[in-house]
Design a binder for these strands. Structure first.
Lengths: 216, 216
DNA sequence: GATGGAATCTGAACATGTTCAGACTGAACG
DNA sequence: CGTTCAGTCTGAACATGTTCAGATTCCATC
């Protein structure tokens, strides 16, 4: 390839991600990554703090892919249900090649204090990216005032739930997760609509209040 | 102590759990566990498949404690909200001494293939124990027919969510989780009540249908 | 008591994430 | 050119989870 030489950091990153995808996280050793990249073991640690940090790179990679795909998928789609459905399906598309890694990814990401946790500061960039996607999905949809501010965050949480489900989904092609998305997206849209019904509104207010209080 | 001699397995288990609680999971080495128990390193692996398996023992321990406390806490308490609140607070009480270990506990529980994973088909003694507790909490409460069968399972899921939140809760004494329970328990009770409202019932039916379909 | 096989225990060896003291490289400066 | 120095790279060493080929103990059976 022409262009500027690939930096060592990028070389290590690319090699690691490729090996993770080819052989899985556990059976990819840092020595292998270094060897395949043609550098000494220590180099990986010079550029990345730990093996988990390299997983974080994968996480970022996959989320950027999601964002790229989302732009096209949302175009011309209107209504919260269809938009959510489209957003989540392309998300699953982006995740698909890494399904085998999901287990380890989640096990790593779920630890509090782990840089890979979606709630950690280190993941801010990634998490914000994903939350922005959900804010976009809401755009143009008619949402009761009480929910408008919190909805993107709540949807993002729901997406994390879908992701967790996907990781555990051993059905061929993760069909069950696709079915979950098909069922959940219109359902969530309905729930949002119902949130405006008189007897329900006050419950929604309470939910939102609790979510906000607890988020702090 | 008098009584039957403690089995080696029990000795290792007890020693490991003590050390985990005293020094945390990461800084307790299998060698230390073995040494403190007065046996060779290999013995721990003869009785337990891995270090994670020992965490699983702690998980079981804590859940049994929860069940013990729950019996007393539910006595004389009526209404779904108060019962749920009581159940969850004693759950947090039981978990409290292990908060530092929460990370590993969750990491073990969340791993696909783990018996106590909420999404795995294999149902484990611990998970059943916890689901039974939630079934008990529902008892005596007035619940719309549509929800009656699924509610214990859904509440158990909610409890897993609370647990996940608790693990990440760094506030002193995990106050924020307590606040979450105080807010969420009555709210869930209200939601269940609202489920009977005409315009809402059909949405609830859909939620239940989706939950059931996806659970299979 | 003797025997044989199963259960249990031993600790050295192995694999792998991680660290680190030093070697190397190239650019800036005199 | 020689010096210096920050940035980068090296690979051996370390810590720890895990395995395993034997040693030992236990116990039913004769």
């Amino acid at each position: 390839m022409s262009g500027p030489e690939e930096s060592t950091r990028e070389l290590v990153r690319r090699t690691a991600l490729r090996l993770f995808r080819e052989r899985g996280f556990a059976s990819t050793t840092m020595r292998t990554v270094a060897t395949e990249a043609g550098v000494a073991t220590g180099v990986a640690y010079y550029w990345f703090g730990s093996k988990a940090d390299l997983v974080q790179e994968l996480y970022l990679d996959v989320n950027e892919d999601h964002a790229r795909r989302a732009a096209g998928a949302l175009e011309g789609v209107s209504g919260l249900g269809p938009r959510l459905r489209a957003l989540w399906h392309v998300g699953l598309d982006a995740f698909e090649p890494s399904h085998g890694l999901g287990a380890e990814l989640v096990a790593v990401a779920i630890r509090p204090g782990a840089a890979e946790s979606p709630f950690s500061r280190a993941s801010d960039a990634t998490a914000r990216l994903s939350r922005d996607l959900h804010a976009q999905a809401v755009q143009g949809a008619r949402v009761p005032a009480a929910l408008r501010d919190e909805l993107p965050y709540l949807l993002w949480l729901a997406w994390l739930g879908v992701t967790l489900f996907w990781v555990h989904d051993a059905s061929p092609g993760q069909r069950r997760t696709r079915a979950l998305v098909d069922g959940a997206a219109p359902l969530i849209a309905r729930l949002v609509r119902v949130a405006g019904v008189p007897g329900v509104r006050s419950v929604v207010d309470d939910v939102v209040r609790l979510a906000r209080q607890v988020r702090a």
